[in-house]
Design a binder for these strands. Structure first.
Length: 188
DNA sequence: CGGTTTTGACCTGCGC
DNA sequence: GCGCAGGTCAAAACCG
């Protein structure tokens, strides 16, 4: 698999079938600098309603078998507990996840939220480590994973998990440029 | 000095 | 049951 799948969880309540997933690649700034891109804000209200909002979404999981050796969503999310001190005995909470690719020289695209890195891990079948970030806003448990593709180190896969419970924290006007350059691949 | 990053250890789920 | 791989914690280091 080359392209990562972007999942738009629907409100149907049914598990989103893999066929609904489509790769989602946008390229920004000719691959030069992307770090001023920002999500959220107007984005949610216009072009991609619910992109990071994911209101009421539930599914968004890709079956492990579908992901094979690919990055992000295949990783079956152990994300077990909410890490409030204990890890065991809690049920699995599956949050909506969105994964997409960007072509960028930098790993971190600035989506307008503040993120704190809490881990980095080498993953199999990938030369590049995966980085784990959490939204620093109090009470907001949104996480994201960032990983560069082995096959194309110009491509960064970002996986968002969860819903921001607060407004975006800084201007996202740059991101609209990204959106306008966004490329959606209807098949993969 | 407060917030962020780094990094090794630890925990959990899954496949064999 | 065991080992592997992925995800998270937490202390120390780093930086503005």
């Amino acid at each position: 698999m080359e392209r990562h799948q972007l999942l738009f969880p629907r409100s149907t309540g049914a598990m989103t079938p893999p066929s609904m997933a489509f790769p989602f690649v946008f390229e920004a700034g000719g691959g030069d600098r992307v770090h001023n891109a920002g999500f959220g804000g107007d984005l949610m209200g216009s072009s991609l309603h619910g992109f990071l909002g994911l209101k009421g979404a539930e599914a968004g999981m890709v079956p492990r078998s579908n992901a094979e050796h690919d990055v992000a969503p295949g990783s079956s999310a152990c994300e077990s507990a909410e890490k409030t001190g204990k890890r065991k005995g809690e049920k699995k909470i599956r949050r909506p996840r969105i994964a997409f690719q960007t072509r960028s020289q930098v790993d971190i695209l600035d989506d307008g939220y503040r993120w704190r890195k809490y881990g980095q891990k080498a993953v199999k079948n990938n030369r590049f480590p995966r980085s784990y970030y959490r939204c620093t806003h109090p009470g907001c448990n949104v996480k994201k994973q960032v990983q560069r593709l082995t096959k194309d180190d110009g491509v960064v896969v970002t996986t968002y998990e969860g819903t921001h419970t607060h407004p975006i924290q800084k201007s996202t006007e740059n991101f609209e440029n990204i959106l306008s350059q966004m490329q959606i691949y209807p098949h993969f």
